[in-house]
Amino acid sequence: MKAAVFHGRRDVRVQEWPDPPAPGPGEIQLAMVRASICGTDVEEYASGPHLIPLAKPHFASGHQGPLVIGHEMVGEVVATGPGVDAFAPGDLVVPGSGVSCGECRYCVRGRTNVCARYYTLGLHVDGGLAERVNVPARISRSAGGLDADVAIMAQPLAVALRAVRGITPEPGRTVVVIGLGGIGSLAVAACAARGVETVGVDVSAARLETGRRAGAGLLIDASREDASAAIRAATGGHGADVVIEASGAVAGLATAMNAVCRGGLVRLVGLHRDPSPLDLTRLVLEEITLDTSKVHICDQDLPEALALLTAHPEIATTALDDVITLDRLVPDGLERAGRGDAAGKVVVRF
């Protein structure tokens, strides 16, 4: 089969790759219909490997060496393994991205996204930027009557829903989203669907436009003005009650820390590789909460994402940048997104 295979930094090849074996117990085999790339895929390509286990086996998946990337996908079931009765050939399915053990202390508490033996499709084992892939049935959900072009946004929307969980409409509350790429723009859309008004911050005019379409009430171009000062001006000098940092950039974190109000919340969603000094004294003296959000909890966030897309399919269009073929993945997907030219999700149509 044809697949996008990671071999090393700036070395992803669209090549022939072995077909997956017959699905094992609890697995389903999908023929890919749509897949998309994420900021993590772009980071692995541009400066990795950070997460992909090229040099030694992954502690949970056991995989070592080149692998098929892609953890955002929609596929049609072509085969089911022993013990699978929830799906049948022909079903359109959206898998979650992470595989948890179901047995450790974290899984037992429902926190499957921090499972002690967690691994991710497309990062720690072969993923969905290929013609076929095997995935666990237990992390997969039916796409129901959704069109594949809408369903492809379900997994990233699930990540965004986890990022905004607990944020509800309140009079006078200001919610800021920094970084209006795939996850950030979907976080804005998720807030808008719940009646939560947001301020969007980015350095890209195209991504700011995506944030506007997603429902941001105020947009701040951080390439032209001091974003934290603009946020404070817009809030009467108090600062934002909630700041979601989705850019993963040092400047984004600095803006978040400078813009949050006393007693406010900063939630980190983007992955920060660079050293990021924090004013811990201010966090304590102003009782600012700093927390994080990692991917999604499949049983909670993925069904909610599918339900939200069923009610608001326009969210998928809002978050879409381009649709390409697998052959064009590197120049029109990974390279373009790495330059910051993609204003939303780049989707591969099989």
Rank of each mutant, 00 (worst) to 15 (best):
D126Y: 08
G144K: 11
L180D: 03
A116R: 15
L123H: 13
G110I: 13
P136S: 10
P156A: 02
M153S: 10
E131N: 07
I152Q: 01
V133P: 07
L129S: 06
I183D: 00
A137L: 15
I139P: 12
V125D: 09
R165Q: 14
G144C: 07
A151Q: 04
G181H: 02
I139M: 15
D126T: 12
D126R: 10
R173M: 13
R117Q: 15
V108G: 00
G166W: 06
R162L: 01
C107P: 00
A154F: 05
H124F: 12
L157Q: 03
L121T: 09
I152A: 02
V177D: 01
Y118D: 00
G172F: 06
G166A: 14
A151K: 10
L161W: 01
A158K: 04
N134H: 14
L157Y: 00
T112K: 10
E170A: 15
L129V: 13
A154N: 02
L146D: 13
I183V: 15
T174W: 04
V114A: 07
I152T: 01
S142G: 15
E170Q: 13
C115T: 07
I167S: 00
V125L: 13
T120Y: 05
H124R: 12
A192T: 12
R138C: 03
R194G: 14
V176N: 08
A154P: 00
A130V: 14
A160S: 13
I167Q: 02
V177L: 07
L180N: 11
R117H: 15
V135A: 10
G182T: 14
T112P: 11
I178N: 11
Q155T: 10
A137G: 10
A154T: 02
I139A: 10
G145F: 03
G166R: 08
Y118M: 14
A130P: 09
G110F: 11
A163L: 04
I167Y: 03
L121A: 08
V135S: 08
P136N: 11
V150D: 00
G127W: 12
A193Q: 09
A143Q: 09
R165C: 00
G172P: 04
G145Y: 04
